[in-house]
Design a protein around this nucleic acid. Structure first.
Lengths: 129, 129
DNA sequence: GATAGGGCCTCCAGTCGCTGGAAGGTCAAG
DNA sequence: CTTGACCTTCCAGCGACTGGAGGCCCTATC
């Protein structure tokens, strides 16, 4: 499979796949013409990476997960530990966004949103009582 | 006030303040020695920027908000429109993170997390049923 | 007056995870 | 033989900073 085929199969842009090769996440073979040639294993690995990325794992976490995925002697505890850390980060992010949301919604509720210049949103951002 | 003083007063790193000047968000005066000199207005503007950023507004949104903050003839509707757009983005992000969280939590719940190599998290990422 | 320290300056490079584009080689169809 | 779709590499840029090098300025102490 060429990069275009694997791109369609995985849903990942060709640019992204080249980038993953550049940073050493995958090592596709090369044909005589210089084209990348992707095996079934490459397909599995890229699918894995795509799903892990879509769950918000960083590239380095993906690298670790992929190594565990490839290592048939891994302990599932190692995987779960990475997942636990990531889950905590997601939760922290959600809380942060919810706090932002609440503050912003409060300010917006106080704002008439009409032609007049008086604006509680700006006042709130400026730190006025 | 020098940059160190304003940094303490606003809680923004000096590097960030210099960056805000570089991209034209603020225009502090300069002393004969080349040092930036910050007025009360600069202090207000930087405080405003700090709060807006902490609510997740992008730099360009902050630029627009700051212009409205400075314009005493603004319409509060203009401010509210920016806030509404941003609120929608926050909500979208929260939903995305909650979906990630749910998927990840499901996978983790199925994983024993012990010394054995069998791992539903990896299976899920690989796309196994 | 010399020196030590802290603060300030600019400029360059790096972060993360791609993404866009230019310039050029390859391949299959008509 | 040409067209057009594909592939290649390399360089640059996104957002919003952040770190560090190298060097000037200011105050305090000896």
């Amino acid at each position: 499979m060429n990069i275009g085929d694997i791109s369609k199969a995985t849903g990942l842009p060709a640019k992204t796949i080249r980038y993953y090769e550049e940073i050493g996440l995958i090592r596709p073979a090369r044909g005589a013409n210089g084209y990348r040639h992707f095996s079934e294993t490459d397909l599995h690995n890229l699918t894995f990476l795509g799903r892990a990325r879509s769950l918000g794992f960083s590239i380095e976490e993906c690298r670790a997960l992929l190594a565990l995925y490839t290592d048939k002697d891994r302990a599932s505890a190692d995987v779960k530990e990475i997942a636990r850390t990531h889950l905590a980060q997601i939760d922290a992010k959600i809380l942060e966004l919810q706090a932002m949301r609440a503050t912003l919604a409060d300010l917006m509720a106080a704002c008439a949103g009409d032609h007049r210049p008086d604006c509680p949103i700006l006042k709130g951002l400026a730190g006025e009582p």
